[in-house]
Design a protein around this nucleic acid. Structure first.
Lengths: 217, 217, 217, 217
DNA sequence: CATGAATGAGCCTTCATTCAT
DNA sequence: GATGAATGAAGGCTCATTCAT
């Protein structure tokens, strides 16, 4: 009797439940961080059984790794493709930077919680982060370097400045998503809105033209 | 025998022990984050009794609040004083930005662990962060706005761009300390070294001249 | 090997384990009191995991409230039913008092540990006790008053004396269970034995006849 | 400087502080019980240093034993003297019971907190209680038996009834002090007030006359 | 596929006490 | 006589996970 009520046969629950868990996890991770969020809380928020997290992802750590990998694989893929497309389209170096930034901002807007969570978690200094840095972030740097090489070969005179520019470019793209509530409360900016992207890209174009020293097309 | 080692008469213990605890806490918080670090681990690292954390700070949460407040009070004080000094010294607007950045980078280099920890913890979205944002970050924004008003009155035509510039300036100053191991592993930069400050300030000067559009003096 | 012993498949565990915990709790509470007994000790005595107390009762306090409520609900139900039955049976007023006392003594003999524990805990002066007093003990007083009204309307001349009689009646019923080891060690009486009830009821009958002033039938 | 404020030279503090501690201890013990009250809370309530409890009484347990012994020594002394005085005064047996009850109620009214605390703590079943029972309560029973022997030699026919009468007499005397807040909230009686003693003694006189079967003079 | 009882480890906090001052 | 820093032990509770169903 009781079982029939709780253990309802849900033919499509398999995939759906998993996504519900992920959604709840991201929501709570963004409030309390990974370590500050319990599997219990996630399951409760998702309205599913506690054991399911272990069941689906092989434990809390598995969920973390799944999320990190998901983000970076998508992120790097977007970056790679956008860079290629920008190259094919031609245009000035600055326009290429803006094009890639646009794609990455779209991606992060699409996966708002995920992006923020991953960016924050990557500021820790533990083994998992080191491993992810050794793979994903190395590739990210490689892609960025390639992008900037094409963009501004003249800057190679001051390699350090070039690095700083790359760093700032990267930072500019992720910053609004790492600290959305700061932008919202202090600057009344809402990184999740489409209009934000438009406005921010204008600034990035300005930045590219001035700092990198090339027209943005 | 063992007692003689642990319960030694230490006339200056009071303050010293407290600082030892703080040092260990920051060290471990930087590796595992606040929630990922246990009071036990802190006490063990500091070589003191577990109960002391509650004894001195009124609990783990009290330690957190103490650290957050310590950082921001110092940080804002440095920013305020540097802004005033820069103004008194005269010079172009760009030079003022560089001067303030210099002071803040020095401050963060001095409190390396603390800075990084606070910056990361502020990306969470819980009540404590909201409270701190309502006080400290509001004042930070106020100081930054004042600084930029003096610097570049002409930028007011595009208020949004001005906000983005302020945001980027702020971000530029704290980014190396939020992600030091990323800079180290991926870009071979060491934010803790004095030479880093010198090099980075050169870039900031460049940035100020180009993006803000004023000579750096 | 060890796992096979501890994590045995026990189809009826759910209820059984809970009762084991309750039994151990009452046993230990009677020796050391509520505050003097640790959850660890209860779990150890019951041979179950410590976490189960929180799992089943929502914490130590929850266990306390569960026990208190369990006792009083049963106690008041017995009192109410016995009073009604005594009324239906007719008989003198004194016989009604004896009938109700009999039922309540039986109840307390059945739940020996529980009765003693609850009686003692109710002598404290904290919020929980005040809440329980506001509900259960008010009803108890109401039932007793009704019982005595029927029994001895003539006593209303001295309402204070009537109150004292009620109090003494109530006290007479619970006293042997609040201080069993005192009765045992000092008076060689064993409240848990059936013979005790028989003898004690004889005294109660005597008391009713003399103090209340009505034959006991 | 600071020391002068906190460590004031108090010439009479020695004895006064000790009594302050006792007073605070009893106050808190009555609310939360012995195990439910921490030494810290007592010291805080008394406004003295935490270490003083260990210093004065040799630990929390020492304080407990001190209080228990204090109560029973006074209680038994009062009972013994009152019994002797009642005998010297002559009068009926019932008047003797009332006289002794009067003295004991006065004593408990004088040491309200202490009485209640001791009565409750004696309902536990631990080693300390057993020890105290072996000495003090045995003597109490001896005194009571003597008192009742003189009072009602005829009751010896039913020795069990005599025991029950003694028990009820004893219980009648201590009950109002074991459960004062019950009397107050449920019956609007205030055992601490002088008028309560007067009224209650009238009932006791009634009880003695009827139950024990001797005039109260 | 999904459940929930049960576990062992660990969490943070508070305990009563000690000791040098 | 009195203090307060410091301790080791224990407190209640929550953690992520497992396993039989």
């Amino acid at each position: 009797m009781k079982k029939m009520l709780t253990k309802q046969a849900n033919p499509e629950s398999g995939k759906k439940t998993k996504e519900t868990v992920i959604h709840s996890a991201l929501k709570l991770f963004n409030m309390g961080g990974y370590d500050g969020t319990s599997v219990r809380a996630i399951a409760a928020d998702a309205g599913v059984n506690i054991a399911l997290v272990s069941y689906y992802f092989g434990g809390k750590q598995g969920l973390l790794e799944y999320l990190m990998a998901s983000f970076y694989e998508g992120y790097l893929e977007v970056m790679e493709r956008a860079a290629k497309e920008a190259e094919e389209k031609g245009g000035t170096g600055g326009s290429r930077l803006v094009y890639v930034a646009d794609a990455l901002i779209r991606y992060q807007q699409k996966y708002l919680y995920l992006s923020r969570f991953v960016h924050r978690e990557m500021t820790l200094d533990n083994q998992l982060v080191r491993e992810l840095m050794a793979s994903y972030l190395m590739k990210e740097k490689y892609l960025l370097s390639q992008l900037f090489e094409q963009v501004d070969p003249g800057m190679q005179n001051d390699p350090l400045s070039a690095d700083f520019a790359i760093l700032q470019y990267r930072d500019m793209i992720m910053m609004p998503f790492l600290q959305p509530q700061f932008l919202r409360k202090v600057f009344y900016l809402t990184p999740s809105e489409p209009s934000f992207r438009t406005n921010y890209l204008r600034y990035i174009r300005h930045w590219a033209k001035k700092v990198i020293g090339c027209a943005s097309g």
